[in-house]
Nucleic acid binder design. Sequence first.
DNA 1: TAGGTAGTTGACGTTAACGTTAACGTCAAG
DNA 2: CTTGACGTTAACGTTAACGTCAACTACCTA
Lengths: 151, 151
Amino acid sequence: MTTVASKTYSIKELADEFGVTPRTLRHYEDQGLLLPERQGQNRIYSGADHARLAWILRGKRVGFSLQEVGEMLDLYDVGDGRETQRAVTIERCRDRIDALEAQRDDINATIDELQEFCELLANLKKNRKTGTWVRRDTGEPLGVYAPRKTA
Amino acid sequence: MTTVASKTYSIKELADEFGVTPRTLRHYEDQGLLLPERQGQNRIYSGADHARLAWILRGKRVGFSLQEVGEMLDLYDVGDGRETQRAVTIERCRDRIDALEAQRDDINATIDELQEFCELLANLKKNRKTGTWVRRDTGEPLGVYAPRKTA
DNA sequence: TAGGTAGTTGACGTTAACGTTAACGTCAAG
DNA sequence: CTTGACGTTAACGTTAACGTCAACTACCTA
């Protein structure tokens, strides 16, 4: 039986691959989100760390704080495996899913509104007489939100 | 022709309705996101302000900074209406949409993963012999990400 | 006339998520 | 043997998005 030396990374390798700085990885470690092994002083990241980092960054992209990401990662820690603990984990997991679905709805709504506005803009033309902008189809004037007085 | 006195709000009314503090609304004003009228010293928010605030808060929920929200709101300002300006606006609008769609993909991926894990958890049972947790269906042991050493 | 409630403008405090700088160790290349 | 790229820790700096005073005004109301 040979030991499979699975891929490992230096701090810069991992940072570069994900487009972040080493400082960021150390920060995530301070926050308890990563815990790479050490070779003397040096951090040495495993494939699991690689996966965790992907999770963390995606969590950030969808708007979670590092703390929240940590809590989500903790969900995967069923270490002790007590029944009650497992039930709680399941519940919190479902809560997270609900929150994410709500957020997705927000995103969809925003997309829709931007899209609508985008089409309206593309459809716009200038009225020869008044010099104002009107819709090419209906001739309606433009008016979505009150423009900000650019004081 | 009668003037339609459309609905207006005091700072506290508007804040309460959206579950934020008056301070927050003043802050948004400082950042140029809102510009309510005044009755003497007092701010008086219009229906348009109400709509803008809804936009702002949804933008925040989907992870935009106030500055980004401001830029998006600016898109609706086609005041001068120059052709080039309009084209730029359309393009930036589309960029935003693309970014939002990418974010939605992230969210979906996260939801899927959580859901899968949630089901796995619900499906889990303890192995009588080893005392460890295994899947009720396949008998596979649990192992998603390396658990964090709770130092 | 003294409260109480709502508003105002500063201005300083706080938290999160890093950036930045300092001061130092390590190892391979020229 | 020194330069350069990489690593380390420790600690202070920065930005965003408000929170939290303080000090003041205005208007009811008991």
